[in-house]
Nucleic acid binder design. Structure first.
Length: 661
RNA sequence: GCCGACCUGGCGCAAUUGGUAGCGCACCGCUCUUGUAAAGCGGGGGUUACGGGUUCGAGUCCCGUGGUCGGCUCCA
């Protein structure tokens, strides 16, 4: 018969499979007419076939999926009974969920990993068998979770849809060289041909509970996460990346560099910034203020608490009361007989700033001449985040948003959105983030939670989309991800080690202008409803602080660094020389110190390098005579014999230009 | 919120089968200082997260509370 093989016609035997096409062992599966298949898949006349290399994204997923199977086999051999949940490949690895009597312990993972490596050596073939629903039920009769999936087929199994596909069901059997079946699982496939192909470049990382089918009303299963790679080098490199990420962890750097802490006495998710962190934060905020002022924003201020009525009007109490701190009940008075003498008031900590800004807008009649009206505030908000989700500075209960609300007319919407996006990206770049993509969150037309008319959503969404496309950045759709009150664009930034963080959001609000009955008078003398844009740039200062800390691994560029320069005299007697220079720089606003301690010079260099000070300036006799200093940087490099005048320029320029050193 | 693990001086770690807390760094003092990542000596500092319980005796065992970590769910 004839097939199209790697884009060229080829004649093959009638019974040919993928195995007949490839000698190359790195080809681990095939794509037949654009569908992934096992190498053992029997080809048909006219098929278009290409090989899937283990290095490709699809090949890696297959490797990881097979590794997950191997793990499940090992777990079921060691732990009886262990019922199978789902076991898909994920980024860099895989997981598998099990219903076991006891949660896994770290030693258990070692045992399982050891058994997996033995299974690799057993050279079991992974063989696909298509089965009817009845057969599948019979084969999986002891696997209650699998039986549930058989009933569901591909309907919403979530990311674990690897078990069941759209068509017929299939099982994969792990078959020993002697032909006996060692293990089997309900699975859509495809898989590697053989356990040997999985290799030994994998490891199990951690175990944790996970709700069955991702629903918190369901039972929690025990999930084991692992990572798997084609080669040991790639595997080791991945573990090194994890270590690198751990070194950058802002929670660790926050302690090491004395930036902030979360005193237990205050409460979970409530941070205090220490003087060194305070400098960074103040500089971040000052620069943001300056840029907002230049961009035509007006600064407003609002209190941290409010009577409940405001959040009733805004709808926050209706939609988000679970996420709000409970109310303070004030002012109620009771008579001796217990009857109410005076009606009390509930006051709430604010979870959002928008209702306050709206009240400012509504405080008087507004004219079209005032639009676009841009209100900006570093507004502190409090959200009752569930205890399990708190995470350093990136998920807290008290935070300060760099929040702005823009009130615009219909005609101004597109141009203002374009301005905002430009503004946001420009500012993020100034803080050192350069690699962005956009996400467009739209509504799910089936879901009734979204308020507002179809036309309004339609227009808002298409406006956001055209603005996003015009930016030239990659645009990723996020269907159903919109807030109930409007669609949004979010800016995702990649940091220095390639992780992505959701930064800014630009969100249209079709709800609040209605609820607060906002109006302005147009040039036609008629009343019109403004459109409202919510916009946070950092998201929250705390979170952005955390992200920048990790992005820079604590090596803040000079303009942000808490201490920008430290002078280290070669010996005591040169302290005055450096101090004089330091005093001069300080008068230019440079955060500079001279280390007059009685440590030896080498020790001082070590201390300030570890404190990640951008510039260390050394001076000894030679320098004092010549009027020079020498620079030492955080990476250990040095520049000697720099004249004081040049040194001054160099330092001031790095600070003013916001460059990294 | 759920599941699991963890909590020892500021930080990182020790403490045999339960026998009444040690080390390094940091800090303080003294001595010493000459060219690019740790000078020497001495000193102070912990009711072992908190509250109960078991025991002759608890950092070690049990229960509760708080907090942290890893996930899940959530994230206006």
């Amino acid at each position: 018969m004839n097939i199209i093989f790697e884009e060229s016609p080829k004649e093959v035997a009638d019974s040919a499979t993928g195995f007949d096409l490839f000698q190359d062992r790195s080809i681990v599966a095939i794509k037949v007419n654009d569908e992934l298949r096992d190498l053992s898949h029997k080809l048909s006349d006219g098929d278009t076939v290409i090989g899937v290399s283990i290095d490709s994204d699809e090949g890696l997923s297959i490797l990881r999926h097979s590794a997950a199977h191997l793990m499940a086999q090992a777990v079921q051999e060691i732990f009886d009974p262990a019922k199978l949940g789902i076991g898909p490949p994920i980024k860099d690895g895989f997981y598998f969920d099990f219903d076991v009597e006891e949660p896994f312990k770290p030693e258990d993972l070692k045992k399982i990993e050891k058994r997996m490596k033995e299974l690799v050596g057993k050279s079991q073939r992974f063989v696909r068998r298509e089965v009817s629903d009845e057969e599948a039920r019979e084969l999986m009769k002891n696997e209650p979770y699998k039986l549930e999936l058989i009933g569901l087929k591909s309907a919403d199994v979530g990311e674990g849809a690897a078990e069941v596909g759209a068509g017929t069901l299939s099982v994969y059997e792990n078959i020993n060289p002697d032909g006996t079946i060692a293990w089997m699982d309900l699975c859509r496939g495809p898989h590697l041909p053989n356990s040997r192909t999985v290799g030994k470049s994998f490891s199990l990382l951690r175990s944790a509970a996970a709700y069955w089918r991702g629903n918190e009303n369901n039972k929690q299963l025990q999930r084991i996460y692992g990572t798997a790679w084609p080669t040991q080098e790639q595997h080791d490199a991945h573990l090194e990346r994890l270590e690198e990420a751990a070194k950058r962890d802002h929670r660790k750097l926050g302690v090491d560099l004395d930036l902030f802490s979360f005193p237990e006495e205050i409460g979970s998710g409530l941070a205090v910034f220490h003087p060194k962190g305070g400098v960074i934060r103040r500089v971040m905020e000052d620069y943001s203020r300056k840029r907002h002022e230049e961009a035509g924003y007006e600064f407003v201020y609002s209190p941290h608490i409010t009577k409940s009525n405001l959040f009733e009007i805004s709808g926050h109490l209706q939609w988000y009361s679970d996420g709000m701190f409970p109310p303070m009940k004030l002012d109620a008075e009771y008579a001796d007989d217990g009857t109410l003498k005076r009606q009390g008031q509930d006051y709430y900590l604010k979870p959002m700033n928008c209702p306050f800004h709206i009240l400012i807008f509504r405080s008087r009649q507004r004219s079209y001449r005032e639009l676009p009206l841009r209100m900006f505030e570093f507004g502190s908000v409090y959200r009752y985040e569930k205890s399990g989700v708190l995470h350093g500075l990136t998920r807290v209960r008290g935070m300060t948003q760099d929040d702005a609300h823009l009130f615009v007319s219909n005609e101004q919407l597109e141009s203002e959105l374009t301005n905002v996006l430009d503004f946001v990206l420009g500012l993020l770049r100034d803080y050192g983030l350069n690699d962005f993509y956009l996400e467009l969150s739209t509504r799910d037309p089936e879901n009734p939670k979204f308020v507002g008319s179809d036309e309004l959503w339609e227009r808002a969404t298409s406006t956001l989309e055209s603005v996003a496309s015009a930016s030239g950045l990659q645009l990723v759709p996020d269907p159903g991800g919109a807030a109930f009150y409007g669609p949004k664009i979010s800016v995702q930034a990649r940091d220095a080690i390639g992780r992505t963080w959701q930064m800014s959001t630009i969100q249209l609000d079709l709800n609040l202008p209605e609820r607060f009955d906002l109006e302005y008078v147009g040039s036609d003398g008629e009343r019109h409803r403004p459109i409202m844009i919510h916009r946070a740039l950092f998201g929250s200062i705390e979170r952005f602080f955390g992200v920048l800390t990790e992005h820079y691994a604590g090596h803040f560029p000079p303009w942000l660094a808490p201490v920008q320069v430290v002078g280290v005299p070669i010996a005591d007697e040169f302290g005055d020389y450096l101090q004089k220079f330091a005093d001069e720089l300080r008068s230019h606003g440079v955060r500079i110190e001279v280390d007059h301690s009685d440590n030896r010079m080498q020790k001082k260099i070590r201390d300030h390098t570890m404190a990640k000070v951008p510039f260390i300036l050394l001076a000894g006799a030679r320098d004092q005579e010549a009027g020079t200093v020498s620079f030492r940087y955080r990476d250990g490099s040095q520049e000697n014999d720099i004249s004081l005048a040049d040194a001054r320029i160099k330092i001031l320029k790095a600070i003013n230009d916001k460059t990294q050193v």
